[in-house]
Design a protein around this nucleic acid. Sequence first.
DNA 1: ATGATTTATTAATGTTAAGTTAAGAATTTA
DNA 2: TAAATTCTTAACTTAACATTAATAAATCAT
Lengths: 225, 225
Amino acid sequence: MGKIKILIADDEPDILDFLKYNLEKEDYQVFTTIDGEQAFNIAKSEQPDLVILDIMMPKLDGVEVCRMIRNDIVLKDTLVAFLTARNEDYSQIAGFEVGADDYITKPIRPRVFIARVKALIKRKSIDTSTEDILQVGDLIVDSSRRIVKVKNEVIELPKKEFEFLVLLASKPGRVFTRDEIYFKIWGDEVIVSERTLDVYVRKIREKIGEGFIKTVKGIGYKLDF
Amino acid sequence: MGKIKILIADDEPDILDFLKYNLEKEDYQVFTTIDGEQAFNIAKSEQPDLVILDIMMPKLDGVEVCRMIRNDIVLKDTLVAFLTARNEDYSQIAGFEVGADDYITKPIRPRVFIARVKALIKRKSIDTSTEDILQVGDLIVDSSRRIVKVKNEVIELPKKEFEFLVLLASKPGRVFTRDEIYFKIWGDEVIVSERTLDVYVRKIREKIGEGFIKTVKGIGYKLDF
DNA sequence: ATGATTTATTAATGTTAAGTTAAGAATTTA
DNA sequence: TAAATTCTTAACTTAACATTAATAAATCAT
């Protein structure tokens, strides 16, 4: 997984350098430009995760760049944050109308700024990471709703049972070794007894039916398909 | 869902035909008129999604029509765009003062024009979809009125309780993690205690009934449906 | 077949997350 | 500014979930 890309557009080189320095220290890949037109071009070519725009810029102002990003099929879900002077109320409204994700007010405090950027990026990853629905034969595993369906009947599983089933369902048919399962569900810190896994298998089978999880003796388990 | 309605008012029949032709090709329903007075009448009767007004028109000019639309209880949220000659600076200002949503400068380039119209309409649909009325089973959450209805009984909730319920109702069934909820309701700056959220859940359940908000232990909450 | 090995089952016990209540701050409203 | 409402915390309880332990059943190897 490559670095997270951030594009900053501001006509004041000092601010540009300052933000770039702080972001690079946090291991982000930073692109900078001083005009709005170029900002959009870089956005198109680099597809950054986050674009930070000053409102006032030569050629194209921040609000307009944001609008262009929102109208671009590839870029439309890109995070956009505006840089704005405190009390610059008009721009606040205009920015949200074109779909800004956040406002960052000047003067910029580095630690607050970084926290904000991290929060934004985390928010995005939450939004997009929870959309997958897995289907294996009669079994449907819906991660965002945390439910399992067997023949249109909704079944709710406790946390670990659900995680275990998601793991198996992520690669139907593939055998997961006991060790692998322990590692992926419990992590390498927690050590539980040898028989714990069997208990989970029993409970899940009770709830979703006996046919799905298949024991591969001496190895582990798999989801039949 | 019917076609999107667009009303165009301009005193030059050539422009009217030209715009009508281009918009109908994109499957919009187009109404035209050459004077401002009639423009307002058609707006009243058809309630178009977008009104495109020439500034200079017989009887009533565009700015005045726009003002009337903005003062009309039914029409006040209608999108209004002005047609204006490039460099017609005065009107630009007057138009925004009366609440124009966009400017379209003559001469008109068809592709640019259509892109602009689409962008406007999309923007509106985004704006209004957030103040939508959400219905989940017996529960109705009306964001614009800030009320909740359960079986026709109106319930008013305090700010935070309401925001929390709106969040859950925005994606019924989807599980929101506790962290996500804290982040979205309180922001990343404010940190409240671990149990605060539970208290809100209790209060909302007391008011709207026990059946709606479902706990997903170890993860968060969701709105059942 | 039979003993060894691996997995299954069940009930009990431990642990953690969420629920509850009341009280005091902080706001808003009159 | 007093009153009322809303927000937050703290301490405690409850319920749900996770894990273990003990025993049974299945599978494998010789």
